[in-house]
Simulated scan of single mutants.
Amino acid sequence: MTNALVLQSDFGVSDGAVNAMKGVAYSVENTISIFDLTHDIPVFNVWEASYRLIQTVNYWPKETVFVSVVDPGVGTDRESVVVKTLSDQYIVTPNNGTLTHIAKEIGIKEIREIDEEVNRLPHSGASHTFHGRDIYAYTGARLVAGVIEFKQVGPNLPISSIKMLPIIQAGVQDDTLIGMVDILDIRFGNLWTNLSRKDLEGMDIRYGDMLSIVIKRENKVVYEGTMLYGRSFADSNVGHPLVYVNSLDNLGVALNQESFANKYRIESGVDWKIIIKKVNTNMK
């Protein structure tokens, strides 16, 4: 039995692009097990592609091969690479920032540039706009099926060559936690931050405490309010805000059964800062 091939892109599923990638993979080996991470990454949003990988990769077995194609620089001289993570999975992707969260949170053992003379779909040489099909799905499938070993992907590159997107490092200043809105829990409109549960515990913040929350876009305050730190959404009334611990053990901000992001027009990324402080309810 072969290992799994997991696909991610910003292609959507309204046309045949994803299906073509799967067809290429099956043409390499028709017993490959193919799974979709998501194909609903907002177009050209490399940041979100990076985050969705870190949200998922740790829950797959060793030797799983991920193909991530969010590639606004397709056809340019940006590198096409395969990395091996410290947890022994492989990621096939353009070297354009997609590996930021993986490099930071898991770590990368080795990176190789794809040799397109060898690892490219036969008879596709005249096409320079669909590397997801012609290079990434093809190379990923060849790795999964054992047609090539990792060393046959292409030449080694230094780990330092991995392109990294800017990140606001979560931290503590005096009695204040400062981080960023990493991503949106899109369907429900919750904000997922890069502040961890342990960050709150280090500030002696416990479930049931009230927290002051400020969210800024660059230097402009977009939201300011006080809310409960709860175990689950049921700890607040419908329509009321709360801070909670999400499935990655980081802090989320939500409105119970409403979209916090939509109501306050909040997005994600390095421009979006969150500031959290414990409210002293004993003050008179």
Results as ranks from 00 to 15, higher is better:
144 V>D: 12
249 D>S: 11
263 K>Q: 13
275 I>V: 08
64 T>G: 12
234 A>I: 10
223 Y>T: 07
122 P>T: 10
262 N>G: 07
57 V>H: 08
275 I>T: 04
112 R>T: 03
96 N>K: 09
70 V>F: 05
122 P>W: 11
152 Q>P: 12
72 P>Q: 03
94 P>A: 02
147 V>N: 13
227 M>P: 02
78 R>Q: 13
159 I>D: 09
81 V>H: 10
248 L>D: 04
186 I>Q: 07
182 D>L: 14
73 G>P: 03
210 M>E: 14
172 V>S: 02
259 S>Y: 04
139 T>C: 15
81 V>K: 05
93 T>M: 12
70 V>R: 01
164 M>E: 09
81 V>F: 10
223 Y>D: 03
280 N>Q: 12
75 G>T: 12
161 S>I: 06
204 D>C: 06
1 M>R: 05
151 K>F: 15
261 A>S: 07
197 R>V: 12
75 G>Q: 11
17 A>R: 12
41 I>A: 00
107 G>N: 11
149 E>N: 09
93 T>W: 07
181 V>C: 07
237 N>C: 08
68 S>I: 00
72 P>N: 03
201 E>F: 12
211 L>Y: 01
91 I>E: 03
251 L>K: 01
77 D>N: 14
273 K>A: 01
56 T>G: 10
103 A>P: 04
283 M>A: 14
239 G>T: 11
275 I>D: 00
91 I>W: 02
264 Y>M: 04
169 Q>P: 03
248 L>A: 01
57 V>I: 15
81 V>P: 11
252 G>P: 01
115 D>P: 12
145 A>M: 10
58 N>P: 14
138 Y>C: 06
142 R>V: 10
238 V>W: 06
147 V>P: 09
89 Q>H: 03
241 P>Y: 07
130 F>Q: 13
257 Q>E: 09
111 I>Y: 09
195 L>V: 04
122 P>N: 13
184 L>A: 02
142 R>E: 08
158 P>C: 07
266 I>F: 10
265 R>C: 04
67 V>P: 02
183 I>L: 07
36 D>A: 08
92 V>N: 05
76 T>A: 11
160 S>Q: 15
67 V>L: 04
133 R>Y: 06
109 K>L: 08
202 G>M: 11
149 E>Q: 11
227 M>V: 04
215 I>Q: 05
234 A>H: 10
59 Y>N: 15
200 L>K: 00
50 S>D: 05
162 I>C: 07
159 I>W: 08
34 I>F: 08
160 S>W: 11
39 H>C: 04
115 D>Y: 13
143 L>R: 15
